[in-house]
Each structure stands twice: as C-alpha cells, then as structure tokens.
Design a protein around this nucleic acid. Structure first.
Length: 437
DNA sequence: TCTGGGGTCCTAGGACCC
DNA sequence: TCTGGGGTCCTAGGACCC
C-alpha cells in the first residue's frame, strides 16, 4: 500500500507545540535576545519557568529557583525576564488562529500546544510532513515563533512524534510516526525513556522501571491487560494508545472549569490578618471574573493559607476552610464577603504566611459530579431545611458547640467539635473561631 | 455463635499535565 | 535573603441504603 495517501477512515492527529514558548514570545518583541541564554521567571521572580535552548544546554532544570541560578547566570550572561502573561496569551491566540486554517478540528491543549484532528483531510494534505512544514513556515512568518509538529494515529503518538521532532535535528521540526516504517518506528521507541510518554511522570517511571519497562518500546510491547492489573486504567489506555489504538478523543469544545483557583506566593512574608484578608479579597475577585466569563455560578469557596514550607526553622502552619454560599452566585461582592470568613476563622497570629488562595468549587452545577451542600437547583428546600436543623441544634447545644460539616441524603448533619475541611456551616458569624482550627 | 451483597454518594489523597 | 500557578482524573475507603 502506498504510504502517501491517508485513507479517509484512519484517525490522524497532529500536535503543534511552540518551542520554549515564553522565551520565544519575549524574543519576538526583543530580537536582541535571539541566540542569547534567556530564562523567564515566575511570580516574584521566584523560579525559571521557561528556558531558551542555550540555558537548557547548561543543564538548568524547569522550575529551578532563580537564586540558585544567579552564579551560573553571571558566568554565562543569562538574561532573566519577569513573566508577562498578557503577552503570552495574545501570542497564543495568534498561533491558534493560524492553526484553524489547517483543520476544522482543533483542540487547544495548553497555552502553547494544540492538537489538530486530520482524519478525513487526506485529500487536502496527502503528506503529513508536508502540512507540518507548511505550518512551521507560516507560524514562523506570521508570529516569528518556532514550532515543532508531530503526527501520529493517536494523541499519545502525536505527542511522542513531537518530542522526537524537537530532540532530533534531522527531522527538521516535523516527525510523522504514522507513516514511518515499522523497524524505524521501533528503533526510535527503543531510544526513548518511558518517562517521556505523555502521562508517565516521575512516580510511574520508577514503578515501570522496577518492573523492567524502561523504554517506550518496552511499554508498547507490554500487554495492556497487564498494565491495567498492575497500574490501573490510565496506564492501560496509554498502552493502547502506543499501539495505535486511539482511546483519547480530540476535545474541540473546551468544557467549563470545575474549579477555579486563584492563589499567589507573597513576595514578603505576611503576618497580619488585615493583609491576608486583602489578598483573599483580591484573589476572590479575580476568580469571580473567570467564573463569570464561563457563565458559571459558585456555591462554595475554599480559602487556604500557609507558611513557607522551605523555611524549616520556622513554625509551620497551614489550614483551609470551605465557606458555602446559600445561594449560588457569581457576584464579586457576594463572593468576597463570603470568602472573607475564611481568613477570619483560620488565621492564627504569630506565624509568617507565605501563600494564600481561594478555590471556587461547586461551580457549573450541571457538570459537577459530586453534590455540594447547597446546589443551585433545589437549593430552596434543602438549605431551608438545613437552616432549621442548625437553628434547633444551636438552641439545644448552644451556639458555641455546633457547626454542620457534612451533609448527605440520609444523614443531614453531623456535629463536629474540631472541623476538618471542608467545613460547611450555615451561620458563619456565630461559629466560634476555635472550631475552624 | 453466627455476622450478606450490591449499590450510591462523598472525601481525601495521589498522580499527572503544562 | 530568595523556592510558580493553574488544572484534571482516578482510586480507595467509609458511611449509608435496601
């Protein structure tokens, strides 16, 4: 069979990935950075979250704290830049827009990665590497960004192909595993460590290695049923995907988020409740903005605070609390007001806080599989009932002793002296601080 | 002394991704 | 001195139901 015609029925995926994305974005607007060793730093200039090839060649790992790099930076003239996420988001949109010209089936996987579904487009793009080079050329020309393209009959294989395209200069940025002769295919897989496979992280690598599975080829040769028995359904799926049986579909419609997190490490340690509350208010309002953008409502906010775990000499403390909203809402003022009960309850004086954040949960009730205390639909009955239960309890035991922390169908409440998260209470004002400990 | 089985709902925690 | 900020999915196990 000729390899340059793709049968209509055959699934084919492409993964397009921008090289060193944040660094490449910075270079687009400052050509002096080209060919220079460059890193982009995280919030507070804490860690290197993007590295140019020159920096990678120096052995700098992703996420290395900047203070550990300063000496190396001085030696090699590494340029360090603070991150500019507005810029990166804008550049990302431009790339995705260009990619939509190549296929109607697009899954934006992350800020710098995109899957294209090419099934049925064989007559339009008979040779995958051809479309790959066209994509590279056009994105380079229109945005200056360098990309690599990988093709495979499953998403996992397309990811792997992209990895090969990046590492092996001979591929010129485009690798097609779908038409590669079998011996060559196996040969490549045998050179790649199992940890490079999408979905195999540090822990799984260790366990796979212990079982004698060290290369991608070895993983591919392992019977999926055995993988399932030993590692679970996720690894089984990976096994099939590596064998060219597609288990992961293209997700063209981005589903609304099931939780929205807003959190930050502080540049300086914070010890006052006032400052903590201000941060929590600002986190909540930015999370609420994202909530409204996806047309969701939220019925519980988790607030968390913690000290700096890296300072082992300090007294450590971390705590969190889930604050319910009886009526689900996306109104910033309501959400902030509710969220502010969190720090009030869990704050302990005498600690130096390093990080805080909020998590909006119970959002988009149709998509949430676990039921929260107050759901948007039918909130009336249930929360009214709960309120009355709580009132009775409060009368009976006194307001000092009762908080509702767990609710299910046939067990409407439980008393809890010392709460664990999530702590649900319908009467924030009156639950004494001690119970939030 | 004997001490079910199948199902649901919920949570905590672990692992992974970029 | 200085150590990111988002997310997802899966599993085990407890509580509860009939």
């Amino acid at each position: 069979m000729s390899t340059d015609i793709i049968p209509i029925s055959r699934p084919l995926f492409a993964l397009v990935d921008v090289n060193n994305f944040y660094v490449s974005c910075e270079r687009a607007f400052n050509p002096d950075l080209v060919n220079q060793p460059v890193v982009v730093l995280s919030n507070n200039d804490g860690c290197a979250v993007a590295r140019s090839n020159e920096v990678k060649a120096l052995g700098v790992k992703m996420g290395t704290p900047w203070f550990q790099l300063k000496e190396l930076a001085k030696q090699h003239g590494i340029v360090a830049l603070s991150s500019n996420y507005t810029l990166y988001g804008d550049m990302s949109n431009r790339v995705m827009t260009i990619l939509r010209d190549f296929s109607p089936h697009v899954e934006v996987y992350s800020i710098d990665e995109c899957f294209l579904g090419l099934q049925g487009l064989g007559s339009l793009w008979p040779i995958p590497t051809g479309i790959g080079q066209t994509i590279r050329h056009r994105i380079r020309q229109w945005t200056t960004l360098p990309v690599c393209v990988g093709f495979g009959t499953t998403k996992t294989l397309a990811k792997l192909a992209n990895h090969i395209a990046k590492k092996q200069p001979s591929f010129n940025g485009v690798c097609d595993l779908s038409t590669m002769p079998h011996e060559q295919f196996e040969a490549w897989l045998s050179t790649i460590e199992v940890g490079e496979v999408w979905g195999v992280g540090r822990q799984l690598s260790l366990h796979l290695n212990a079982a004698g599975i060290k290369t991608v080829q070895a993983l591919r040769a392992t019977p999926p049923a055995w993988l399932r028995a030993k590692f679970g359904v996720v690894m089984e799926r990976l096994g099939y995907e590596l064998r060219g049986i597609s288990c992961l579909a293209l997700e063209e419609l981005s589903a609304p988020k099931k939780q929205i997190i807003s959190s930050r490490s502080f540049g300086q340690l914070i010890d006052s409740l006032t400052e903590l509350s201000e941060s929590v208010a600002s986190f909540t309002s930015s999370a609420a903005e994202r909530l409204r953008r996806q047309n969701s409502v939220c019925n519980a906010i988790q607030v968390f605070i913690q000290t700096n775990p890296f300072r082992e000499q300090d007294k450590q403390y971390s705590n969190c609390m889930t604050v319910p909203l009886p009526n689900a809402s996306s109104d910033t003022r309501l959400l902030v007001r509710a969220a502010l009960f969190g720090p009030k309850r869990i704050y302990r004086p005498g600690y130096a806080y390093k990080k805080a954040g909020v998590i909006l949960t119970g959002i988009d009730s149709a998509a949430v599989h676990q039921e929260s205390l107050f759901t948007l639909h039918g909130a009336g009955n249930r929360s009214a009932k709960l309120m009355s239960v709580l009132d009775q309890l409060n009368q009976r035991y006194g307001r000092e002793t009762v908080a509702i922390f767990s609710v299910s169908k046939n067990k409407p409440w439980m008393m809890q002296q010392k709460n664990r998260t999530p702590c649900y209470t319908t009467n924030w004002q009156d639950v004494p601080i001690a119970y939030a400990h």
